Computed example of a mutant assay.
Amino acid sequence: MPDQKNFGFIGGGNMGEALIKGLLRASLCAAGHIHVFDVSPARLRDLESTYGVRCRTSAAEVADSAQAIFLAVKPQHMEPALDGIASHLSRSQLIISIAAGIPISMIADALPEGQPIIRVMPNTPALVLQGASALARGRHATDEHMDLALGLFRSVGTAVEVEEKLMDAVTGLSGSGPGYVLLIIESLIEAAVLLGLPRAVARELVLQTVSGTAGLVRETGRHPAELKDLITSPGGTTIRGLHVLEERGLRGALMSAVEAAALRSSELGKK
């Protein structure tokens, strides 16, 4: 993508900053071609001093400056953000929303007819450029628009395209999933401390165990159950632990957690 393309951010919070960092790290554009507006002047000064981006005094200024505009605001702030840019847009500009639970139809209703829109559900590991993002296109977003957006979010991790009707499932899985994984990590650390390991040692071992196992699944391409069988010896330690987890219903609990979070996402979207 040529450097002359300008990107705009309405909202400079953690996720907005992660995307800015990803754009720059992947050399998708120069810092001077990133335009940012945030309601906090202090936040803008921090982004400017850290990344060299161009700070703007209003959402309208961002809309006047950028070909692709990220709506990186909280859901409750979406309506005023859209009001601030609607009259400054043309159909050549791509709108990319990362506001959780806000459907494309709501954004489209507030913007000019024919505006290309892509809705994204990123997750918090994007803050360390290890995110998992799902993207859904509005009816005016072309393959070219989607390719651009996928490239942007792949600069902060993994990105896939899904139908918008699946975004609640994505929210329950990868959107809320870091919370489930963090609980598992915390529990494993506490178990190690219970058994006498120093907390720092327990933390290091657990983090590497989790990340290494994910890498094993990714690199081999094998089914998790198949890999699990490889390390589960008859009468050994792993099968003893797995037996307890099955007795306590870990598998069903995780499945129910994803389902509950997806249903909650649907409820919030309807509101």
Results as ranks from 00 to 15, higher is better:
9 F>Y: 04
11 G>N: 08
13 G>A: 12
14 N>R: 13
15 M>K: 04
16 G>S: 05
16 G>Y: 00
17 E>W: 08
19 L>P: 01
20 I>N: 03
23 L>H: 00
24 L>T: 00
27 S>W: 05
28 L>F: 06
29 C>I: 04
30 A>P: 11
31 A>N: 03
31 A>E: 00
33 H>Y: 02
39 V>F: 08
40 S>L: 15
45 R>M: 07
47 L>A: 10
48 E>I: 03
57 T>N: 15
57 T>Q: 15
57 T>A: 15
62 V>K: 05
62 V>P: 07
63 A>L: 07
63 A>F: 06
64 D>K: 05
65 S>W: 00
70 F>C: 06
74 K>A: 06
79 E>H: 15
80 P>V: 12
85 I>N: 05
87 S>M: 09
88 H>K: 13
88 H>Q: 04
90 S>G: 13
90 S>D: 04
90 S>Q: 06
92 S>Q: 13
93 Q>S: 00
95 I>H: 01
97 S>L: 12
99 A>R: 09
105 S>N: 10
106 M>S: 15
109 D>F: 14
111 L>R: 09
111 L>D: 11
114 G>K: 14
115 Q>S: 14
116 P>L: 09
116 P>S: 06
118 I>Y: 02
119 R>D: 00
120 V>P: 02
122 P>D: 03
126 A>T: 06
127 L>F: 08
129 L>R: 09
130 Q>R: 14
130 Q>H: 11
130 Q>E: 14
131 G>D: 04
132 A>V: 13
135 L>V: 04
135 L>W: 05
135 L>Y: 05
136 A>Y: 00
141 A>I: 07
143 D>N: 13
145 H>K: 10
145 H>C: 11
147 D>A: 14
149 A>D: 09
150 L>Y: 04
151 G>N: 11
153 F>G: 06
153 F>K: 01
154 R>Q: 10
157 G>E: 05
158 T>M: 07
162 V>G: 01
163 E>R: 00
180 Y>W: 10
183 L>W: 11
184 I>T: 14
188 L>F: 08
188 L>K: 02
189 I>G: 06
199 R>I: 08
201 V>T: 14
203 R>Y: 01
204 E>N: 08
206 V>N: 11
206 V>S: 09
213 T>F: 05
214 A>V: 12
214 A>Y: 02
221 G>S: 04
225 A>L: 13
225 A>S: 15
225 A>R: 14
228 K>T: 14
233 S>N: 11
235 G>P: 15
238 T>S: 11
238 T>Y: 05
244 V>S: 07
253 A>P: 05
258 V>L: 11
259 E>T: 09
264 R>E: 10
266 S>V: 02
267 E>S: 07
269 G>W: 08
270 K>D: 10
